[in-house]
């Protein structure tokens, strides 16, 4: 008789897959309550390491061309597609039927490809040549805001994660993601897709574990430039905003309700614009 070789689900920090610094893990149960796996329970020190990795990776990632970031996002889509069966079985843990799970994976791939296309285009849409009185050109261009903390939604575990990570990183931000706590397995597999998709180490860091304990440290972390609260919802948002305000960290509020499957509501170039800073330069005209 052969003993199964089961996968240890770990964190994704700086391009590597460490266990939690705390050594802790927590059970992941399916809808019937049966424990199907144990996932790493990230501690605040793992969060600290992840932010440091994201900060270190940010200038290099932002320094690439938008075109290249688009190519890499497309590559992520390829890697997700390639792991479709794994994602389907992991999404079924959350109660999806096979067909529903398959559809979620397809939507996730499509969303990545959609944002990949914006890589070399959103600057033209968000930036502008502004009309001013006087002998000057006045040009506004978006620049990535820096390190973004993303609170991914509990569900959909894969589509929600992808829908928020893609617009954040396409402009040159790096991300620290708190994955779905109840259904963390697709996030870990997504990390494996990232690791094989030429995404530089540290650009996306994914933590699984107790969100409630991590969020206060993420929100107050002074080296985090923005928090994406789409996956968090409105309950408790005030605390996040209060903690973030001390270091003037931008908090991107969620809409009242989110329909993740709706292409008109859950993907938009303006979601890229939520995580950029507009830089305006004046340039003299004429000779």
């Amino acid at each position: 008789m052969r003993v199964d070789v089961r996968k240890t689900y770990k964190l994704f920090i700086a391009g590597g897959f460490p266990r939690s610094e705390s050594g802790r893990s927590y059970p992941v149960a399916d809808t019937s309550g049966k424990v199907v796996a144990r996932a790493a329970a990230a501690s605040r020190k793992d969060l600290r390491d992840a932010v440091r990795a994201a900060r270190g990776a940010q200038p290099g990632w932002a320094g690439r061309t938008g075109y290249n970031r688009g190519q890499i996002l497309y590559r992520i889509a390829e890697m997700v597609e390639d792991r479709a069966d794994t994602f389907v079985s992991q999404l079924r843990v959350g109660g999806r039927t096979r067909a529903q799970a398959r559809r979620e994976v397809e939507r996730s791939v499509d969303r990545l490809v959609w944002y990949a296309g914006w890589g070399d285009k959103f600057v033209q849409v968000v930036g502008n040549m502004n009309p001013v009185q006087g002998d000057f050109f006045n040009i506004s261009t978006p620049e990535p805001t820096g390190v973004v903390g993303i609170i991914a939604p509990e569900e959909p575990a894969l589509l929600g994660l992808v829908s928020r990570v893609a617009p954040v990183i396409i402009s040159g931000n790096t991300a620290v993601v708190l994955a779905s706590e109840r259904l963390p397995l697709p996030a870990v597999t997504f990390a494996e897709a990232l690791a094989t998709a030429d995404v530089p180490a540290g650009v996306v860091n994914i933590l699984t574990g107790p969100k409630d304990r991590l969020i206060p440290y993420l929100a107050s972390h002074r080296d985090c430039n923005a928090i994406d609260a789409w996956g968090h919802g409105w309950e408790g948002l005030a605390e996040i905003e209060a903690a973030a305000a001390d270091s003037v960290t931008r908090v991107v509020r969620p809409p009242r309700t989110v329909d993740w499957t709706n292409e008109r509501l859950a993907q938009s170039p303006y979601m890229i614009a939520d995580f950029v800073e507009i830089k305006t330069v004046w340039h003299p005209k004429g000779l």
């Binding site: 932010v51 972390h221 002074r222 080296d223 001390d246 270091s247």
Partner: peptide, 8 residues
């Protein structure tokens, strides 16, 4: 109890 930013 707040993680700091090197730029500060």
């Amino acid at each position: 109890g707040v993680y700091q930013r090197p730029d500060d």
